[in-house]
């Protein structure tokens, strides 16, 4: 990471070695520029955090306080809204359902994508380029197109309202994504490693498990993270395929509209709780997020 110093270094460098008056003036201008550069990310992060803060703020208020007066922080912070969620099975089961199908989907996606990505990164075979492109098109398919046919397909197999149905349906966009990310990481491993392993008498499965997988461990982590993420945030398909037994937490949130009006406090608390898993996993992959979004090609 020694090459990551960037503009800050140029500017100090220019300042130190500024012989000509012209470049000194410019150096000064750049230094003042860089001194205030931190303001941009700060303002941006504030913009990002404000709506989330507002949701958090609301989740700690009573409905009466939310509706009767406008306060920037709760007058009497209460955890009652969270208690509603943690004590009512129809709420916390939504959580368990979401996590179940997300994990199931991540495992399936990464498991089938591993050998395929290896094939794409190491071999040429009949129709490989077309196949790769076809996989990509599935990542680009609008979920709205698939909502209705999915419903009919999974009804025919009797899978409606099961975790497996949602996990399989999310493979539509997660498998291509996992193949792409893993292929990017695998192409970074020199081929000589495979050849040396074969010469040393390793069988393919043994080589793959013992030598190759540890080498691309970070790639597997990133692919798993992205599968987790896209399955976690998707709702249209998940909601179409479930009714009660496998209903995701995000879909349960629509329940807060009742005859007596919106239950804003509980809605906000549920929203805050859906952000927590994302915030937890993001910390582990913070240095690889961009590489994952670039499909392993930065």
């Amino acid at each position: 990471m020694s090459t990551t110093t960037g503009t800050a270094t140029i500017e100090t460098g220019v300042a130190a070695g500024g012989q000509a008056p012209r470049s000194r003036a410019r150096a000064r201008a750049q230094r003042t520029g860089s001194r205030y550069a931190f303001l941009v990310p700060t303002v941006y992060i504030t913009f990002l955090m404000l709506p989330i803060y507002w949701l958090f703020n609301m989740s700690l208020k009573t409905n009466q306080e939310i509706l009767s007066k406008f306060t920037l922080w709760p007058d009497e912070p209460t955890l009652a809204n969270y208690m509603v969620i943690f004590t009512d099975p129809s709420w916390y089961n939504g959580y368990i359902n979401s996590i179940t199908y997300v994990v199931l989907n991540t495992v399936i996606s990464v498991a089938v994508a591993l050998p395929a990505a290896y094939a794409f990164s190491r071999y040429k075979f009949l129709g490989d380029k077309h196949l790769f492109f076809w996989l990509l098109t599935n990542r680009m398919a609008p979920p709205a197109v698939f909502a209705l046919p999915f419903f009919q397909l999974y009804s025919a197999f009797g899978l409606i309202d099961t975790h497996l149905a949602v996990a399989l349906a999310h493979c539509l966009f997660n498998v291509p994504l996992a193949v792409w990310i893993l292929e990017g990481f695998m192409s970074g491993v020199p081929k000589e490693i495979d050849e040396t392993a074969y010469i040393d008498g390793y069988s393919f499965p043994k080589f793959f498990g013992k030598i190759f997988m540890p080498l691309i461990a970070s790639g597997i982590g990133v692919a798993a993270f992205f599968c987790f993420m896209f399955s976690w945030v998707e709702l249209l398909i998940a909601r179409t395929l479930t009714t009660t037994a496998a209903k995701p937490i995000a879909a349960t949130m629509t329940r807060t509209v009742s005859a007596s009006g919106m239950d804003w406090g509980v809605l906000a608390a549920a929203g805050v709780l859906t952000i927590v898993p994302g915030a937890l996993v993001i910390y582990f992959v913070r240095n690889y997020i961009a590489k994952g979004f670039a499909l392993g090609r930065v």
Partner: peptide
């Protein structure tokens, strides 16, 4: 910066909607 900036990307899409629905309301 990386963790805070990536946070909105991991919010379920309907919760993004809910957050802004609430945030933009004139009364609350």
């Amino acid at each position: 910066c990386l963790v805070l900036m990536a946070l909105p990307l991991l919010v379920p899409w309907n919760v993004v909607g809910t957050i802004w629905q609430v945030f933009g309301r004139a009364d609350i």
